[in-house]
Protein backbone atom coordinates (compact mmCIF):
# COMPACT_ATOMS: atom_id res chain seq x y z
CA UNK A 1 0.00 0.00 0.00
CA UNK A 2 2.73 2.43 1.07
CA UNK A 3 4.86 1.27 -1.83
CA UNK A 4 2.15 1.89 -4.40
CA UNK A 5 1.61 5.37 -2.95
CA UNK A 6 5.33 6.17 -3.06
CA UNK A 7 5.83 4.77 -6.57
CA UNK A 8 4.50 7.81 -8.48
CA UNK A 9 6.60 10.15 -6.30
CA UNK A 10 9.66 8.02 -6.96
CA UNK A 11 8.96 8.03 -10.71
CA UNK A 12 8.45 11.80 -10.80
CA UNK A 13 11.65 12.47 -8.88
CA UNK A 14 13.54 10.03 -11.14
CA UNK A 15 12.25 11.76 -14.27
CA UNK A 16 13.19 15.16 -12.81
CA UNK A 17 16.66 13.95 -11.92
CA UNK A 18 17.13 12.41 -15.37
CA UNK A 19 15.95 15.64 -16.98
CA UNK A 20 18.38 17.70 -14.85
CA UNK A 21 21.23 15.36 -15.68
CA UNK A 22 20.33 15.59 -19.36
CA UNK A 23 20.38 19.41 -19.23
CA UNK A 24 23.66 19.50 -17.31
CA UNK A 25 25.33 17.11 -19.75
CA UNK A 26 24.11 19.11 -22.71
CA UNK A 27 25.30 22.41 -21.25
CA UNK A 28 28.67 20.86 -20.45
CA UNK A 29 29.15 19.67 -24.05
CA UNK A 30 27.69 22.86 -25.48
CA UNK A 31 30.07 24.97 -23.38
CA UNK A 32 32.70 24.23 -26.04
CA UNK A 33 30.68 26.16 -28.63
CA UNK A 34 30.78 29.90 -29.24
CA UNK A 35 34.38 30.40 -28.05
CA UNK A 36 36.50 29.80 -31.12
CA UNK A 37 35.53 30.44 -34.72
CA UNK A 38 37.99 27.75 -35.87
CA UNK A 39 36.65 25.04 -33.55
CA UNK A 40 33.03 25.90 -34.37
CA UNK A 41 33.72 25.92 -38.10
CA UNK A 42 35.33 22.48 -37.83
CA UNK A 43 32.37 21.08 -35.89
CA UNK A 44 29.94 22.66 -38.36
CA UNK A 45 31.93 21.29 -41.31
CA UNK A 46 31.65 17.73 -40.01
CA UNK A 47 27.95 18.25 -39.30
CA UNK A 48 27.04 19.69 -42.67
CA UNK A 49 29.39 17.98 -45.10
CA UNK A 50 28.06 14.55 -46.03
CA UNK A 51 31.43 13.28 -47.22
CA UNK A 52 33.16 14.27 -44.00
CA UNK A 53 30.27 13.28 -41.79
CA UNK A 54 29.08 9.99 -43.20
CA UNK A 55 31.63 9.13 -45.92
CA UNK A 56 33.63 7.23 -43.29
CA UNK A 57 30.58 5.14 -42.39
CA UNK A 58 29.95 4.43 -46.10
CA UNK A 59 33.61 3.38 -46.52
CA UNK A 60 33.39 1.08 -43.48
CA UNK A 61 30.23 -0.45 -44.93
CA UNK A 62 31.93 -1.11 -48.30
CA UNK A 63 35.04 -2.50 -46.61
CA UNK A 64 32.94 -4.84 -44.50
CA UNK A 65 31.01 -5.93 -47.60
CA UNK A 66 34.15 -6.91 -49.53
CA UNK A 67 36.40 -7.76 -46.60
CA UNK A 68 35.58 -11.46 -45.99
CA UNK A 69 38.57 -13.76 -45.95
CA UNK A 70 36.66 -16.66 -47.46
CA UNK A 71 33.45 -16.98 -49.43
CA UNK A 72 31.75 -18.28 -46.29
CA UNK A 73 32.76 -15.30 -44.18
CA UNK A 74 31.87 -12.91 -47.04
CA UNK A 75 28.48 -14.59 -47.22
CA UNK A 76 27.96 -14.22 -43.48
CA UNK A 77 29.01 -10.55 -43.51
CA UNK A 78 26.72 -9.73 -46.43
CA UNK A 79 23.76 -11.35 -44.70
CA UNK A 80 24.35 -9.15 -41.67
CA UNK A 81 24.81 -6.03 -43.79
CA UNK A 82 21.67 -6.63 -45.90
CA UNK A 83 19.70 -7.12 -42.69
CA UNK A 84 21.29 -3.97 -41.28
CA UNK A 85 20.03 -1.95 -44.25
CA UNK A 86 16.48 -3.22 -43.69
CA UNK A 87 16.82 -2.34 -39.98
CA UNK A 88 18.21 1.13 -40.78
CA UNK A 89 15.14 1.94 -42.91
CA UNK A 90 12.86 0.75 -40.07
CA UNK A 91 14.85 2.75 -37.52
CA UNK A 92 14.66 5.99 -39.48
CA UNK A 93 10.92 5.46 -40.01
CA UNK A 94 10.40 4.86 -36.26
CA UNK A 95 12.46 7.87 -35.17
CA UNK A 96 10.70 10.13 -37.70
CA UNK A 97 7.26 8.98 -36.54
CA UNK A 98 8.21 9.36 -32.87
CA UNK A 99 9.70 12.80 -33.36
CA UNK A 100 6.49 13.94 -35.03
CA UNK A 101 4.36 12.72 -32.12
CA UNK A 102 6.58 13.48 -29.14
CA UNK A 103 6.93 17.18 -28.84
CA UNK A 104 10.36 18.35 -27.76
CA UNK A 105 11.97 21.28 -29.58
CA UNK A 106 15.70 21.33 -30.19
CA UNK A 107 17.69 22.81 -27.28
CA UNK A 108 18.74 25.76 -29.47
CA UNK A 109 15.02 26.55 -29.95
CA UNK A 110 14.46 26.16 -26.20
CA UNK A 111 16.88 29.03 -25.66
CA UNK A 112 14.06 31.37 -26.75
CA UNK A 113 10.98 32.53 -24.88
CA UNK A 114 8.57 29.71 -25.64
CA UNK A 115 5.06 28.96 -24.46
CA UNK A 116 3.90 25.39 -24.68
CA UNK A 117 0.29 24.26 -24.79
CA UNK A 118 -0.34 22.26 -21.62
CA UNK A 119 -4.00 21.29 -21.34
CA UNK A 120 -6.00 24.51 -21.29
CA UNK A 121 -3.14 26.91 -20.82
CA UNK A 122 0.05 28.14 -22.38
CA UNK A 123 2.92 27.56 -20.00
CA UNK A 124 6.28 29.28 -20.39
CA UNK A 125 9.01 26.69 -20.88
CA UNK A 126 12.27 26.66 -18.99
CA UNK A 127 14.82 28.47 -21.12
CA UNK A 128 17.95 26.55 -22.01
CA UNK A 129 20.98 28.87 -21.82
CA UNK A 130 22.80 27.30 -24.77
CA UNK A 131 25.74 28.87 -26.59
CA UNK A 132 25.57 29.35 -30.34
CA UNK A 133 28.40 28.44 -32.68
CA UNK A 134 30.33 31.19 -34.41
CA UNK A 135 30.60 29.74 -37.93
CA UNK A 136 28.70 31.45 -40.74
CA UNK A 137 25.90 28.88 -41.16
CA UNK A 138 25.19 28.62 -37.42
CA UNK A 139 25.09 32.39 -37.12
CA UNK A 140 22.66 32.56 -40.06
CA UNK A 141 20.35 30.03 -38.47
CA UNK A 142 20.67 31.82 -35.10
CA UNK A 143 19.51 35.09 -36.67
CA UNK A 144 16.72 33.24 -38.48
CA UNK A 145 15.66 31.83 -35.10
CA UNK A 146 15.59 35.32 -33.60
CA UNK A 147 13.27 36.23 -36.46
CA UNK A 148 11.03 33.29 -35.66
CA UNK A 149 12.06 31.14 -38.63
CA UNK A 150 11.63 27.71 -37.13
CA UNK A 151 11.36 24.59 -39.25
CA UNK A 152 8.83 21.93 -38.28
CA UNK A 153 11.71 19.44 -38.04
CA UNK A 154 13.20 21.57 -35.25
CA UNK A 155 10.17 21.06 -33.03
CA UNK A 156 10.55 17.31 -32.66
CA UNK A 157 14.14 16.52 -31.70
CA UNK A 158 13.31 13.41 -29.65
CA UNK A 159 14.59 10.88 -30.59
CA UNK A 160 17.52 11.81 -32.80
CA UNK A 161 17.11 10.21 -36.24
CA UNK A 162 20.83 10.73 -36.91
CA UNK A 163 21.64 8.71 -33.78
CA UNK A 164 19.16 6.00 -34.76
CA UNK A 165 20.31 5.70 -38.37
CA UNK A 166 24.06 5.88 -37.90
CA UNK A 167 24.14 3.69 -34.81
CA UNK A 168 22.05 1.05 -36.61
CA UNK A 169 24.46 1.07 -39.58
CA UNK A 170 27.58 1.18 -37.40
CA UNK A 171 26.33 -1.63 -35.16
CA UNK A 172 25.56 -3.69 -38.26
CA UNK A 173 29.10 -3.09 -39.47
CA UNK A 174 30.36 -4.05 -36.00
CA UNK A 175 28.44 -7.33 -36.18
CA UNK A 176 30.03 -8.02 -39.58
CA UNK A 177 33.53 -6.86 -38.73
CA UNK A 178 34.67 -5.84 -35.26
CA UNK A 179 37.57 -3.61 -36.35
CA UNK A 180 35.58 -1.67 -38.94
CA UNK A 181 32.63 -1.57 -36.56
CA UNK A 182 34.64 0.12 -33.80
CA UNK A 183 35.83 2.71 -36.30
CA UNK A 184 32.26 3.36 -37.51
CA UNK A 185 30.86 3.48 -33.97
CA UNK A 186 33.64 5.80 -32.79
CA UNK A 187 33.12 8.13 -35.74
CA UNK A 188 29.36 8.14 -35.17
CA UNK A 189 29.67 8.84 -31.46
CA UNK A 190 32.41 11.45 -31.51
CA UNK A 191 32.14 13.24 -34.84
CA UNK A 192 28.47 12.93 -35.83
CA UNK A 193 26.63 12.81 -32.51
CA UNK A 194 29.18 14.80 -30.49
CA UNK A 195 28.79 17.64 -33.00
CA UNK A 196 25.02 17.47 -32.67
CA UNK A 197 25.29 18.00 -28.89
CA UNK A 198 28.03 20.65 -29.05
CA UNK A 199 25.88 22.65 -31.46
CA UNK A 200 22.80 22.14 -29.19
CA UNK A 201 20.79 20.43 -31.93
CA UNK A 202 20.19 17.41 -29.72
CA UNK A 203 20.35 16.59 -26.02
CA UNK A 204 22.08 13.44 -24.72
CA UNK A 205 18.59 12.06 -24.06
CA UNK A 206 17.60 12.50 -27.75
CA UNK A 207 20.78 10.66 -28.74
CA UNK A 208 20.26 7.89 -26.17
CA UNK A 209 16.67 7.38 -27.33
CA UNK A 210 17.74 7.23 -31.00
CA UNK A 211 20.44 4.73 -30.05
CA UNK A 212 17.89 2.73 -28.05
CA UNK A 213 15.56 2.49 -31.05
CA UNK A 214 18.51 1.43 -33.23
CA UNK A 215 19.67 -1.29 -30.83
CA UNK A 216 16.17 -2.68 -30.26
CA UNK A 217 15.15 -2.73 -33.92
CA UNK A 218 18.49 -3.95 -35.25
CA UNK A 219 18.50 -6.83 -32.74
CA UNK A 220 14.89 -7.76 -33.46
CA UNK A 221 15.24 -7.55 -37.24
CA UNK A 222 18.55 -9.45 -37.25
CA UNK A 223 16.90 -12.18 -35.18
CA UNK A 224 13.67 -12.39 -37.18
CA UNK A 225 15.24 -12.23 -40.65
CA UNK A 226 17.93 -14.74 -39.84
CA UNK A 227 15.54 -17.15 -38.15
CA UNK A 228 12.57 -16.87 -40.49
CA UNK A 229 13.97 -15.61 -43.77
CA UNK A 230 17.41 -17.17 -43.86
CA UNK A 231 16.62 -18.80 -47.21
CA UNK A 232 15.98 -15.47 -48.87
CA UNK A 233 19.12 -13.98 -47.31
CA UNK A 234 21.16 -16.97 -48.56
CA UNK A 235 19.78 -16.53 -52.05
CA UNK A 236 20.47 -12.78 -52.02
CA UNK A 237 24.05 -13.16 -50.86
CA UNK A 238 24.78 -15.89 -53.39
CA UNK A 239 23.35 -13.60 -56.08
CA UNK A 240 25.75 -10.84 -54.99
CA UNK A 241 28.63 -13.26 -55.45
CA UNK A 242 27.40 -14.58 -58.80
CA UNK A 243 26.65 -11.12 -60.25
CA UNK A 244 29.48 -9.30 -58.57
CA UNK A 245 29.66 -6.38 -61.05
CA UNK A 246 25.96 -5.56 -60.72
CA UNK A 247 25.95 -6.07 -56.97
CA UNK A 248 29.03 -3.83 -56.63
CA UNK A 249 27.18 -1.08 -58.47
CA UNK A 250 24.16 -1.49 -56.20
CA UNK A 251 26.29 -1.57 -53.05
CA UNK A 252 28.07 1.59 -54.21
CA UNK A 253 24.68 3.29 -54.56
CA UNK A 254 23.63 2.04 -51.13
CA UNK A 255 26.89 3.22 -49.52
CA UNK A 256 26.48 6.55 -51.31
CA UNK A 257 22.99 6.93 -49.88
CA UNK A 258 24.12 5.86 -46.42
CA UNK A 259 26.78 8.57 -46.66
CA UNK A 260 24.14 11.17 -47.40
CA UNK A 261 21.51 9.97 -44.89
CA UNK A 262 19.28 8.89 -47.79
CA UNK A 263 18.64 12.51 -48.78
CA UNK A 264 18.46 11.64 -52.49
CA UNK A 265 16.01 8.79 -51.95
CA UNK A 266 13.85 11.11 -49.83
CA UNK A 267 13.96 13.72 -52.61
CA UNK A 268 12.96 11.04 -55.13
CA UNK A 269 10.03 9.94 -52.94
CA UNK A 270 9.03 13.60 -52.66
CA UNK A 271 9.06 13.86 -56.46
CA UNK A 272 6.85 10.75 -56.71
CA UNK A 273 4.40 12.26 -54.21
CA UNK A 274 4.34 15.53 -56.15
CA UNK A 275 3.78 13.63 -59.42
CA UNK A 276 0.89 11.75 -57.81
CA UNK A 277 -0.65 15.04 -56.68
CA UNK A 278 -0.18 16.84 -59.98
CA UNK A 279 -0.72 14.09 -62.54
CA UNK A 280 -3.05 11.57 -60.94
CA UNK A 281 -5.08 13.87 -58.70
CA UNK A 282 -4.91 16.83 -61.10
CA UNK A 283 -4.00 19.35 -58.41
CA UNK A 284 -2.38 21.96 -60.58
Amino acid sequence: MVLSALMPLFLISSVDRLSDLNDQLLLLLNSAAGRSWLFDSLVAFFLDNDLAKAGVIGCCFLAAWYGGKSSNSTNARRKILITTLVAAVCVITTTKVLSKTIFLPRPEIQSQKIYRLDGDQLVEMKRMPVRFMLDEESQKSYHALLNGDVETNDLGSFPSDHAGFFIAISLGIWLASRRLGWLALGWTAIVILGGKMISAQHTPLDIAAGAGVAIVELSAIQYVLRKRFNGILERLTSLTLRYSALSSAIVFLVAFEVSSTMIHIRAFLGLLAAMRRHVLLGMG
Binding site: T101, F103, K113, I114, Y115, R116, N147, G148
Partner: peptide
Protein backbone atom coordinates in the same frame (compact mmCIF):
# COMPACT_ATOMS: atom_id res chain seq x y z
CA UNK B 1 0.46 13.71 -28.02
CA UNK B 2 0.32 16.56 -30.43
CA UNK B 3 1.41 19.71 -28.71
CA UNK B 4 1.64 23.31 -29.67
CA UNK B 5 4.05 26.13 -29.01
CA UNK B 6 4.29 29.86 -29.33
CA UNK B 7 7.79 31.27 -29.73
CA UNK B 8 7.98 34.94 -28.78
CA UNK B 9 10.48 36.62 -31.06
Amino acid sequence: QKEGIVIMT
